[in-house]
Design a protein around this nucleic acid. Sequence first.
DNA 1: TCGTGGCGGGG
DNA 2: GTGTACGCCACGA
Length: 801
Amino acid sequence: MSASDIEIYILDASYEVIGGEPHIVIWGIDRDGRRVLLRDRRFRPYFYAIIDKNFYDKIDILLSSIKRLSRPRSPITSLEIVDKKFFGKPVKAIRITTMLPEAVREYRDDVSKIPGIERVVEADIRFSMRYLIDNDIYPCTWHRFRVVERPRSGEYRVDAEYEVIDILHRVEEFVPPRLRVLAFDIEVYNPRGIPKANKDPIIIISLYNSDGEYIEFTANDKDDRNLIKSFIDYVLKYDPDIIVGYNSNRFDWPYLIERSRFLGIKLDVSRRRGVEPSPSVHGHISVPGRLNVDLYDFAEEMSEIKIKSLDEVAEYLGVMKKSERTNVPWYEIYRYWDDEKLRPILLRYARDDAISTYGIAEKILPFAIQLSSVTGIPLDQVGTASVGFRLEWFLIRIAYMRDELVPNRIEREYEPYRGAIVLEPKKGVHEDIAVLDFSAMYPSIMMKYNIGPDTLVKDPEICKEDKCFEAPETGYKFVKEPSAFFKIALEILVKARKIVREQLKKYSVDSIEYRVLDARQRALKILANACYGYMGWVGARWYCRECAEAVTDFGRETIRKAIDIARNLGLAVIYGDTDSLFVKYDKEKIDKLIKTVEDVLGLEIKIDKIYRRVFFTEAKKRYIGLTDDGRIDVVGFEAVRGDWAEIAKELQEKTADIVLKTMDPKKAVEFVRNEIEKLRKGVSEGSIPIDGFIIWKTITKPLKEYEVDAPHVVAAKYLEKAGYRVEVGDKIGYVIIRGSGKISDRARPYINVDVRDIDIDYYIEHQIIPAVIRILGYFGITEKHLKTVGRTGRSLFDYRK
DNA sequence: TCGTGGCGGGG
DNA sequence: GTGTACGCCACGA
C-alpha cells in the first residue's frame, strides 16, 4: 500500500509489546470523523547516564562496561555519547537505548553502579509519554502524520488502522472534532450502608449522551446481569470517545469492574476488544481507546464550591438547580428501590444525576481538553494529576526542547520558609476604596530576577561586577544570565497566552472558537501561576526551597515599595495582602501610582475593583465590601467558610448587607433578634429542616490518629459504628444536640437526627452570635443587645459610630 | 487562662 | 503529594 498524509486529533497513546518489539499505539479521529488507530513501530525506550567529569577521558571504558550489561531478552541496542545540560551546566551523557520499556528499570540500577557514572536520569519517564514528548505530539491536538493504511486486524474497534512512517507536524488549530461524549451514573442496592460488590446488585445505570438522548437500564428486581450486559452493548453501540462520570474513578468504575467479575461478565467496553477497564496512574481508571474523565477531580479544585456533591456542583455551574431536581439520600436508596411507590422517585434521581453529570462535562471539558493539550498529559489523566504534576510534564517538554536533562525525583525533608506579608488593616468603614493588584506577581518576579535552581548562586565570587540579583532579606543570589529554566518556561507560557488572547479578539463571545481559546488562555495562566508553589514543593523534580523563599522575599520588598510610592503620592493605604493594596480611590493619584510602580519596579499593577464602602475589623484576611453595583463581598468571614452552620453564615451575610448598605446597626440587631426567635420556634415545633444546622468538617487523617475528640471526629465515629466507611478526605456533616457534657459529646451525624433534638442554644451562643458580633461588635453592640428580648433592650444601645 | 491541635478559605 | 499566613474553635493542663 502507498503512503499518504493524514491529520489526526489525538485522543490517547499507549504501547503494546508484539513479538518482543514495542509498538506505540495512538488513538485518534481523522478529518472525516473516522475513529482511527495509528501504530508506530520505530520508537525505542532509552535513558541517560551522566558521566563524571573525571572520566571524560575514559568514556570508552564506560561504554564497554555498559555493553557488557546487555541481556538477550531486551538487548542494549545503542549507546550514544551526547552533550546535554543538567541544571543549566553542560554535561556529557551516554544515551542508552534498549528494546522493551520494562527493561529500562533493570538497566538503570546496574548502570548507576558503574564507577564513573555520576547519575542515571530519565529512566522513570513512561514510554508512551516519552514518545509524545520526543515527537512534540500533544494529546487533544491536531497532528499531521505520513502513514500507510493497514488491513483492519479486528482487535480494535476503530474505522481504520495505519502504520506511521513519519510524524510531520502539529496543526495550529485548537477546535476539536465533534466528540461523542457519554455521561453515566450507577445506583447500587445498599441495605447495609456501604454496598459490597459480591452481595449488592447495581439497580440502575443512567446515561446521557452528546446527541441529547437519555438512556436508562434497570435491574430485574435484584438481578443485574442483563442490566450490565445492556450497558456494555450500549457503550459499544454509541461508541463514545469520552466517558464522563462523577466520582466514577473511585466508585462507579471500581464497582462495575468488581461486580462484573463477580457475575462472570466481561466488561468489554473499551476500543480494544476484550480489554477491560483497569486502574492506572494517579488512581484513574483506564478504558483503552476511550477517554475516561472523572469530573469530580475538576470540581475538587474549585475552591468557590464548599460541598462538592454532584447536586451542589451542578447548581453552582448553572447546570441544574437543586430546587428543580430529585434527590434521594444515598443511605435510603435501597428503600426507594424496594418500595414500588418510591421507585419512580429513585429513577428520577438517577436521571437527574446523569443529566447533571453531562451538563457539568459541557462546562468543564473545554478547559480539561486545553489543559491536556498544553501540558501534554492525556485527557483521561490530566484530571487525576495534581497541579504539581501537570506543571512538571509541561516542564519536561521544555527541558527536552532545550537539551536539558530531567532531574530525578528525590525524597527530601520538608523545610518551612517565610511567605508573604499581610498588612494590619485600618479598622472601620472606609468609603471609596480601590483594590489594586499586581498582575501575576510571583511569575513576574521569577522572570524579573531570573530565579531558579540553575541560576541560584552557591559561590558568591561569580557575583562581582553586578552579575547577580540579590534577594533583600534572605540574601540569596541569582545570576542575571543566562536565562533561568523557569524564566524560559514562563516566557513561553506568557507569550503563548498573549497570542491566544490576541486571537480571542477576533471571535464573538458565544462562538466555539472563543470558548476554546478562552479555555486555553486559562490553562496557560494556571500553569504560570503554579511555578512558584512548585519550586517550594518537596516532591518536585525542580525543587528549590531557596528559590521559593527568594520569590516571597522579593514579593515582600515589591509590595513595601509600592506602599511607599502610594504614600508619597498622598494615597492612604488601608490594607494589603501578598500582591494587593487597598487605597483611597483618587483617579488621578492612582493613575500616577500605577505608572510609577511600572517605571520604578518594572511590574504591572492594576485596579481590580472599587468598593463604595469596605469594612475591616482588626483582623487580617477578613473584610466586607460593598461594590459599585450594590453587591456585598464577604471575604474571610464565617459566612464564606464551609465549617460553619448555614444559619450562622446566612445571618452574618445579611447583617453585613444591612450594615454596609444602611450604616444603621440597629436595623441589623432587630433583624438578628427576629431570626433567632423564628429559629427557636421552628426547632421546638420541629417545623424547619435540619439542613441549616449542619456543620461540615473534613477528616484529614485516619480516625485512630486523632488525639483529641473534636466534634466532627466524634460524629465520624458514630458513622463508623453504624456501618459506614469513613475515609480521609470525607466531609462529615454533624449537628449538636441537647443534653449535658462537652460539645463533642453531643455531636451527632445529621442523618436521622430530629430537628427537635437540636441544641438551639448552642447554635445561638456558639454560631450565630459570634458570627454577627464579628461585624456588629465594631459598632459597640454586644451579645446582650442580641439576646435581650423585646423593646426594653433598646435603651441599652450605645453606638460608637 | 493560655498553649496546642485542628481546620479551612483566600491573597 | 503546588506554597505560606491567618483566625478561630475546642480541648485540656
